[in-house]
């Protein structure tokens, strides 16, 4: 074997001679490498010091990141180069010792568990059963308050909103919507009066009010009276995943959900035209009272928002 070949052959570090060529640095020219590394270290050192200075004078945020990041990167590159070029070149080898033990050893362990331990349990089956039962019951009982206290039961919450017979439609500032308020083609988000600034009003009751004409508008059979003076109200909760259906395509008269682009036909009972939403947006029946204010004839006739197990097929 030539010298070179020998160098490429990995050696073990256990009991290696101090002058073994594998322990020599990898660089052909260590002095030059050392100088280059020194330069990166100096740059790194200056930059991290600069980081301190920038912090001290409260300089712009980017200068903090630039000095710290640059400094760490230079120090890191220098250190990597030190390890790669100025430390023992290797390659070194380590033996892999088999992890598995002899069959006797395994049997000894198995015997301890099965015979010594198992025997103890087998002879006292009743005791083991009682202990196991006690712990099991404790587990179940402990789970119960833990889970149960996390939150209330859903009960009917998901089925109802706060829209009732005669509820005033108000905007986010609490102002009642009057017959003359919206021009044709305009849209506003409305809430049941008094709930405009509550979590529930915003998360559950939110409703879009659109005016699409001057005449009473029927969106579907059986809804002849629901759209007085061209005012239509739909739940704003997307039936896909409950994002607010916040975009109105005026020309196509589509309500669009920005989350996954479900599109609902405003003129036809908000039946989905496109996208993953499975159901139309529920429509809120409206009427205009003697003073010209918009109010709901009744609540929604079905749960609003995304689907869930108990929702019920008959309602959709």
């Amino acid at each position: 074997m030539s010298d070179h070949d020998e160098l490429r052959t990995p050696v073990s570090l256990q009991g290696i001679a101090a002058d073994d060529p594998h322990l020599a640095p990898a660089a052909h020219n260590p002095q030059i490498v050392e100088r280059v590394i020194a330069v990166t270290f100096v740059l790194g050192l200056l930059l991290v010091a600069g980081f301190g200075a920038c912090y001290w004078v409260n300089a712009k945020p980017w200068t903090l990141g630039a000095t710290m990041g640059g400094g760490l990167t230079f120090l890191g590159i220098g250190l990597i180069a030190w390890g790669k070029y100025l430390m023992p070149r290797g390659p070194f080898v380590e033996e892999r010792h088999e992890l598995a033990n002899s069959e006797d050893d395994r049997n000894a362990l198995a015997a301890a568990i099965v015979e010594r331990g198992g025997g103890v349990v087998k002879r006292r089956k009743m005791l083991a059963g009682l202990l196991g039962g006690g712990l099991g019951i404790f587990g179940v009982v402990a789970m119960f308050p833990l889970l149960r206290s996390l939150g209330p039961l859903p009960k009917g919450t998901l089925f109802s909103t706060d829209w009732k017979k005669g509820t005033y439609l108000v905007d986010i500032t609490g102002r009642r919507v009057h017959q003359g308020d919206l021009a044709i083609g305009s849209i506003v988000t409305v809430y049941p009066a008094g709930l405009e600034n509550t979590d529930r009003g915003q998360a559950v009751d939110q409703t879009v009010l659109i005016r699409i004409s001057n005449e009473n508008f029927t969106t579907q059979k059986g809804r002849e009276t629901w759209g007085p003076a061209g005012y239509l109200a739909y739940s704003k909760l997307c039936t896909h995943l409950g994002c607010p259906v916040g975009l109105y395509e005026q020309e196509l008269q589509l309500l669009v959900c920005p989350c996954h682009q479900s599109m609902f036909d405003v003129t036809n009972g908000a039946v989905p035209q496109f996208g993953p939403a499975p159901r139309p947006l529920p429509q809120l029946p409206l009427y205009i009272d003697a003073d010209g204010y918009l109010r709901s004839q009744d609540g929604y006739d079905q749960p609003v928002g995304p689907g869930f197990w108990e929702r019920g097929a008959s309602l959709s």
């Binding site: 945020p61 980017w62 200068t63 903090l64 990141g65 630039a66 710290m68 990041g69 640059g70 400094g71 760490l72 990167t73 230079f74 120090l75 890191g76 590159i77 220098g78 250190l79 990597i80 180069a81 030190w82 390890g83 790669k84 430390m87």
Partner: peptide, 20 residues
């Protein structure tokens, strides 16, 4: 040495991203 240097480089690059 190499891995500590690498820790510095990874943190340094993250700091640069955070800066710019």
């Amino acid at each position: 040495a190499k891995t500590t240097g690498f820790l510095f480089v990874v943190s340094g690059v993250i700091a640069l991203l955070g800066a710019f």
